[in-house]
Each structure stands twice: as structure tokens, then as C-alpha cells.
């Protein structure tokens, strides 16, 4: 049986959003912005990007139960540890 799938149009919009968020992250880097808030903001953007790929590209948006959240659950793990480590070090 074939899986239900997300349409191309939402995936294309997600692609454009991913490109935009990537350029935004790069801009933060080249502008030399630092500190705990900036670091957590950049990390947050990346977690959102990961979630979008899981939902739209891997099709988890159309899956029920535990599998629906498998990528989100994973993103939370490095998200929490990286945030904690940057909090301890005070960001910059």
C-alpha cells in the first residue's frame, strides 16, 4: 500500500523558507553577532528547519501516532543539550 503524501506546492514553499532561514543564519554569522540569545535564536531556527524537513519532505505530517513525532523528538535532544551547554558558558 502506498503512503499518503504531501503535495509539491507546500514542499516548494518549505524549500523557499528553508533557503531563507539558511541565509538568515549565515547573515548572523557574517555579522559576527554572538551571545546566548543570538545562539539560541539561531539554534531555534535550525530546529524549525529540521522539523519542516521531517514533516514535509519525509512526509511525517501525514503519519499518526509515535512516528509522527520521531524527528521532533530527536531535534529536542540535541536542542536541549546544546542550549544547556551554551547557557552554562554564557553564550559567547
Amino acid at each position: 500500500m502506498q503512503q499518503k503524501t504531501t503535495g509539491i506546492r507546500p514542499c516548494t514553499l518549505v524549500y523557499l523558507l528553508l533557503m531563507l532561514l539558511t541565509v538568515l543564519t549565515w547573515t548572523v554569522g557574517v555579522m559576527g553577532l554572538n551571545g546566548l540569545t543570538v545562539a539560541l535564536l539561531v539554534l531555534g531556527l535550525s530546529l524549525i528547519k529540521g522539523h519542516l524537513i521531517g514533516d514535509y519532505y519525509m512526509g511525517l505530517k501525514l503519519v499518526s501516532g509515535a512516528w509522527r513525532w520521531v524527528i521532533v523528538a530527536w531535534l529536542i535532544i540535541p536542542g536541549v543539550f546544546i542550549s544547556a551547554a551554551f547557557y552554562i558558558s554564557g553564550g559567547g
Binding site: V42, L43, L47, G50, I53, Y57, L75, I82, F86
Partner: peptide, 29 residues
């Protein structure tokens, strides 16, 4: 086309990992 989806899902996983790696190594400070 299960085999095709299997391959592309692995490829998306590689993408997700880089999406965290990029800010962590190159940007966050």
C-alpha cells in the same frame, strides 16, 4: 516505489543533520 522513498528518506536525514551542524560549528558563538 517504497525503495525510492527509503533512499530519499535517508537523504533527508543527512540534510537534517547538516542543518544542525552548520549553525553549531560555523555560526553559534
Amino acid at each position: 516505489y517504497t525503495g525510492l522513498e527509503t533512499g530519499t528518506n535517508y537523504w533527508h536525514m543527512v540534510d537534517i543533520v547538516w542543518i544542525i551542524l552548520f549553525p553549531l560549528i560555523y555560526v553559534m558563538r
